[in-house]
Simulated assay, not measured.
Amino acid sequence: MPTLVHRFVLTGAASEVPPARREIVDKVRAWGVPLDEATADAIRLVASELLTNAVVHGTGPITVVLSGRPGRLVIDVLDGHPAVPRSRCAQADDENGRGLALVRLLATRCAWESVGPGKRVWAEMALPMAVEVGPAEAGPRDLPAIRAKGRVGPKPASPRSAVA
């Protein structure tokens, strides 16, 4: 299966984050990925953190690129500000400062790299595998057998530095 790609651009306004988050989950579902609510919520959270950081700490326009292959999704967020993404040590009553820690927790891999005058921050997430039902694979009592598709494909381009 080839890599599925979806790209869109935001101006950098905070009001664009919720619809962009929905667009990401909707696109993954449109690709035929059987998302359960826990996986959809994880994608929404990672996307929200990456997008919000680009809006708050970066400069627009912000380019979002989704790359999907069986079993994985890469969310790339590119903005025009070269500042290095940094984790903060949030205190219990702080309302901010946990975003990159959440991304690291939910993503299988994440990193950043300088790109032109700005940066690219990305996160790779595991996805449920699509299933194929084949009539030639019918099991007992003519119930269709289900087999998962295997994972294939290259890894994302090697970043220069892991997200701190």
Rank of each mutant, 00 (worst) to 15 (best):
T3W: 10
H6P: 06
R7A: 14
V9T: 15
L10R: 04
A13S: 14
A14T: 10
A14S: 10
E16W: 01
V17Q: 01
V17N: 00
V17S: 04
V17I: 13
P19K: 05
A20V: 07
R21S: 07
R21Q: 13
R22K: 11
R22C: 06
I24W: 02
D26F: 11
V28T: 08
R29P: 11
W31G: 06
G32Y: 13
V33S: 04
V33Y: 00
V33D: 03
P34M: 06
L35P: 03
E37T: 11
A38D: 15
A38W: 10
R44S: 04
A47T: 10
L50Y: 05
L50C: 10
L51C: 07
L51N: 00
L51Q: 08
V56E: 15
V56H: 13
G58R: 01
T59W: 01
T59E: 01
P61E: 11
I62M: 06
I62A: 01
T63Q: 15
T63Y: 08
V64I: 15
V65P: 08
G68F: 04
R69I: 09
R72G: 01
L73G: 00
V74Y: 00
V77C: 00
V77M: 02
A83F: 09
V84G: 07
V84Q: 10
S87E: 14
R88D: 12
C89I: 12
A90F: 15
Q91H: 11
A92G: 10
D93Q: 13
D94G: 03
E95H: 01
R98S: 02
G99E: 02
G99D: 01
G99Y: 01
L100G: 05
L100Y: 13
L102T: 14
L105Q: 13
L106H: 04
T108R: 13
T108N: 06
R109K: 12
R109W: 03
R109G: 02
R109S: 08
A111M: 01
A111H: 02
A111T: 00
S114W: 07
V115Y: 09
G116V: 03
R120L: 15
E124T: 13
E124V: 08
E124Q: 14
A126C: 09
A126E: 15
A126M: 09
L127V: 05
L127K: 02
M129I: 11
A130K: 13
E137M: 07
P140D: 13
D142N: 15
D142I: 03
P144S: 09
P144D: 10
A145P: 07
I146N: 09
R147E: 11
K149F: 15
V152G: 04
V152N: 04
G153M: 02
P154S: 11
P154M: 07
R160E: 11
V163Q: 01
A164Y: 12
